[in-house]
Design a protein around this nucleic acid. Sequence first.
DNA 1: AGTCGTTTGGA
DNA 2: CCAAACGAC
Length: 447
Amino acid sequence: MTVSVMWFRADLRLADQGALRSAIESGPDGVVPLFVLDDHFDPSNMPVRSAYLARLLADFDERIGGLHVVRGRPEVEVPRVVEQASASSVHVTGGHTPYAMRRDRRVADALGDVPLVDADSSYAVAPGTVRKGDGTSYKVFTPFFRSWQAQGSHPPVTAVRSHAVPWLRSGRSAALPEVTETDVDLPPAGEQAARAHWRRWLDDHVDDYDGERDRPDLDSTSRMSVHLKWGTIHPRTLLADLAERSSAGARAYERQLAFREFYADVLHEWPHSAFGYYNRDYERMQYDEPAGDFEAWKEGRTGFPFIDAGMRQMLAQGWMHNRVRMAVASFLVKDLHLEWTHGARWFRERLVDADLANNQHGWQWVAGCGTDAAPYFRVFNPVGQGKRFDPDGAYIRRWVPELRGVEGRGVHEPWTLEEPPADYPPPLVDHAQERLEALRRHDALGG
DNA sequence: AGTCGTTTGGA
DNA sequence: CCAAACGAC
């Protein structure tokens, strides 16, 4: 009997998209599903994501009847499980961050003659494979998008759900993390939840996506980011469903999926951009040190209702509408003059969908130092964004209880009210002034 | 995936 | 007088 180990990387890219098929094609009679909780895994650094991961692992464990979870270093634990199971191959599936790639190489070295097969990526097109005619990678989204579309991707795999190859049940794993209570209103975890949610959104909302996606008050985005991040659904599944639709909304959604693929490709090509400036000119800019204003931003007490609503939505749900992410990021970088890395770290702590490539490059786009970034002089107006994308203020009233009693559009500028709510803070900064300060600091860079 | 001050053209 | 369009940052 030949056995293969199916090693899920940091997330649970599931078998229906090719990983298990790839294992089947290599001919094993059984598959050991393995998840390694890395020694470096520290729940205090990612409280929201670790709470979600525990739910996800529990769901997976229940569904396949025994996920093998071990704690330790992958280069030690993967070979150990291979030896215990007398496996002849390891199929790895999941995210393509530079860190995952480096870790794979260490594991491959430790495995010796047992092949480590990169069974599937968590992207429609694997990072590092969309290339210009001269073989170099793209730095601008639009040409990447065209090339990515032209390249296409194979259809999603659906038939392997029939369990042509049995999972080798290992019994309940002692290392399975405990599912603990959390104050965060987390979305349901698991593949079935992901598929059900997608189906519903596709039927009811995708055709309106183009017109409504920027409106946090309507809450009409797909909220699929969490499922894509954790791999409980594959983008190829989404693309196949979208291809059957002719609406502008379906096309706009494909474009958003392509942004995710673009940033994964960028990170793959420039690993340093995960935690440093993609455009290193911006390292020299003058920044302030995080202080009380940073704490106010984190807690949603800046006195700018649209900004505070977003930050509080993130604390409550581990999720924030993308339009608001851009506005709060701009506020941190250009009104508070803090480095984007501080904000990106807070997002990674509090967002359940925090994905390294999307998060870091989304921030760098706003900060003007990323690939195909917004020019630095594009400064979001924290009030104007609210008026434009939350016209009636419903989003603000939902997330900022102090302002719930304020009727009309005055809710965007409570300091102009005759009687501003006493328990809501005054604006932390003068936006017009700080905007000019940001432009001044940028000018000081020269060139 | 922006904002702001200015200009322009129609009422 | 005001909105839409425009160009600069």
